[in-house]
Write a protein that binds this DNA or RNA. Structure first.
Length: 648
RNA sequence: GCCUGGGUAGCUUAGCGGUAAAGCGCGUCCUUGGUAAGGACGAGAGCCCGGGUUCAAAUCCCGGCCUAGGCUCCA
């Protein structure tokens, strides 16, 4: 920050990213500053960032601001270029269609969109619009910025009701607004933009979607056209390739190919059916947490899928969650499918009296829950109506939070590392509206913080982002192609114990209120399973693979030996490919079915009493001893290694 | 819920007013094959459901169901 030197009327100070300071005249713009640093930088300037906010290069700087110059080739400049591309889209649309009303057209993380009202297009029209955009780019119109008064803007936007609505809001804070003009077309826009349409690289329109004006379903539905733009063709091709790769990992496709699960019309939306191979994977996942739970002193409980709504009134779910619950009448009583497992567990705890010596109590359940998400939100296994949580609820003394949370964190880290997932943590603290005393909040938060500090790992502090009933630690992890997912959580709850009037008798022989901890290691099995399918592209580690080994006899003269071998490996999920087919086809099939290991047996193996082994990386080895391979498989499975590594 | 696509054999898709197609998979047979597709034949489809238009509908229209992608990273 600037020193206490006397404030000059003629010059102000801006702070550059390296911490150095630059003196510039009072009315200097971002671009002026860039030229001040160097003429080369001045010429390359696309836009600027003032205190982190992206602005046009024409924007004036102010005293003490942290200034960053955005130049060509930077990520920010790509955003600027895409924003300009969205203007070209709007220009093209207005050339092709009459009476269209413009809404907004910002850049996004991987492209841009523009929203229009009164526009009727379908996907076949996109090619024509792309062609028009190309012409606009080729015409190389200069993009001119103009600051005009509010009154002047109102006149210019007389035919644009949505723009007028926006303008009204800006009018409160600004005397002037900016327009950007290219050729015959102009738009109310804060910018920044590139200097001319010729600087826009290659533009591609992707899809049409509906979008509510300002995202509010009370408002009219507009037509949104999504597109993207890149500096050059090869970047666009790479982008399309990435989308193709993501599509190839789509768990719905792989799930159907591998016969993992189905979601059928007759059974209803968002209600997945797990087929034997899929349930095999789930069972492995279940038994993994069961081991962790057992080691950490959890006891398994089981609660029904349906409860009288009395329970949901008591837990508060009915009041807060009614629209998302499946509720129905049976005779004179009202029942509801459970949207969460915690009330059932609280009811179990409540059923007897407890001493401080009994605590902590740790209940676990693979509990299926039902939430009536909006139909349009449902998608494969990632958004469903019925899903299973590897739920755990702990009832602890307030001073015992730290110790328990520490154990839970160990379990979570164990899980994430087993699947080779990089993760981040965040601590969410007390929001404005909350229940519970200052004392308990402070005590809880400081214990959570202490757990995080001890790990010596970085974490984000999300102040005020906790639930109203308690603070929490959230995990997020990244999959094999860099996508980020919400992961496990540890959540403290001061509310549920109140609602259920949960107590334990302390050393002082007085009744005390326990704190409840909600925790899940996977979150929901459905979501985690989906993520694993896409993370591994269906190539599960040995311990998870629905079929672990396939025995391929070279000819049917070796069928008997093949089944003998299969018997030797019957502690694994092993199949014999006994179809009348060539070895090549059998190998191909085993590959397509993503089996980690193939055992190949022909006359040579049969005579020698050994096997040939091939893995999914196409490596192979002859004359393998059955015992050696068996030992290896056991170790690979039990250590939950990620890749088949016998031949690696 | 709302917008835009889509729903045809177990799977992936073609056909888009005039006799329902292909590849994979499945079955039978020939082939007995040594490291990513040998060959022949065959079975398999209320073309999502309901209504309408038409001499004629998988195809066009209306309604429903399911499904995919969207539904303020603020001009």
């Amino acid at each position: 920050m600037s020193e206490s030197e006397p404030e000059s009327q003629e010059s102000i100070t801006v702070v550059l990213p390296d911490g150095s300071e630059l003196e510039v005249p009072e009315d200097a713009t971002v671009e002026d500053c860039a030229y001040e640093i160097g003429p080369g930088l001045g010429r390359d300037t696309v836009a600027g960032k003032l205190d982190g906010e992206l602005v046009a290069k024409e924007e004036p700087v102010y005293d003490g601001v942290e200034l960053e110059i955005v130049t060509e080739g930077s990520e920010e400049s790509l955003r600027v270029m895409r924003h300009s591309a969205s203007h070209c889209l709007a220009q093209a649309v207005e050339r092709h269609y009459d009476d269209v009303e413009l809404a907004i057209g910002p850049p996004t993380d991987d492209g841009f969109y523009y929203d229009f009202d009164n526009l009727d297009v379908d996907e076949e029209d996109l090619a024509a619009l792309e062609g028009e955009i190309e012409e606009i780019v080729d015409a190389d119109y200069e993009i001119e910025r103009e600051d005009v008064s509010i009154e002047e803007a109102e006149e210019r936007l007389a035919d644009e009701p949505y723009k007028l609505e926006l303008l009204e809001e800006f009018a409160d804070e600004n005397d002037t607004v900016s327009f950007y003009k290219q050729g015959e077309w102009e738009d109310l826009c804060a910018g920044p933009h590139v200097d001319s349409t010729g600087e826009i690289g290659v533009v591609s329109l992707l899809e049409i979607a509906g979008a509510y004006w300002r995202g509010d379903e009370e408002n009219t539905m507009q037509t949104r056209i999504y597109g993207t733009a890149f500096e050059d063709e090869s970047d666009l091709e790479e982008f399309i390739e990435q989308r193709r790769e993501a599509a190839e990992r789509d768990h719905r496709r792989i799930g159907s190919e591998m016969n993992l699960f189905s979601i059928q019309d007759v059974t209803g939306p968002g209600l997945p059916l797990y087929h034997p191979p899929g349930k095999t994977v789930l069972k492995e996942l279940e038994s993994f947490v069961e081991t962790l739970n057992h080691d950490a002193g959890y006891e398994y409980v089981e609660t029904p899928h349906v409860f009288k709504t009395d329970l949901w009134h008591r837990s508060g779910h009915y009041e807060n969650y009614e629209d998302d619950m499946f509720i129905f009448d049976v005779g004179d009583d009202e029942f509801g499918l459970k949207p969460m497992n915690c009330p059932g567990h609280a009811a179990i705890f409540q059923d007897q009296s407890w001493s401080y010596r009994d605590l902590p109590i740790r209940y676990a359940e693979n509990g299926k829950v039902y939430r009536k998400e909006q139909r349009g939100e449902l998608s494969g296994l990632s958004r469903v109506w019925a899903f299973t949580i590897d739920d755990g609820h702990l009832f602890v003394r307030p001073e015992g939070i730290e110790r328990e949370v520490e154990t839970i964190m160990d379990m979570i880290v164990d899980v994430l590392e087993t699947f080779d997932l990089d993760y981040e943590m965040a601590l969410a603290t007390r929001p404005e509206k909350s229940v519970g005393s200052d004392e308990i909040w402070n005590q809880a938060e400081s214990q959570l913080e202490s757990v995080l500090e001890k790990r010596d790992l970085e974490y984000d502090l999300e102040e005020g982002d906790g639930a109203f009933y308690g603070p929490k630690i959230d995990f997020a992890f990244e999959d094999a192609i860099g996508r980020s997912w919400d992961g496990p959580t540890v959540q403290l709850d001061f509310n549920m114990p109140e609602r259920f009037d949960l107590t334990y008798v302390g050393e002082d022989n007085e009744e005390h209120r326990p704190v409840m901890i909600h925790r899940a290691l996977y979150g929901s099995y459905e979501r985690f399973f989906m993520m694993l399918i896409e993370h591994y592209e269906g190539n599960f580690p040995l311990w998870l693979a629905p079929e672990q080994v396939r025995v391929l006899p070279i000819s049917d003269a070796n069928l008997e030996y093949a089944s003998e071998i299969a018997d030797r490996f019957d502690e694994f999920r092993v199949e014999v490919d006994d179809r009348d087919s060539t070895l090549e086809r059998k190998i191909r099939a085993a590959h397509d079915d993503r089996v980690p290991y193939q055992i190949i047996v022909g006359d040579n193996e049969q005579e020698a009493g050994n096997i040939s082994v091939r893995d999914r990386f196409e490596d192979q080895e002859y004359d393998v001893s059955i015992d050696d391979f068996q030992d290896h498989l056991e170790a690979e499975r039990d250590e939950k290694r990620t890749e088949p590594d016998f031949l690696q």
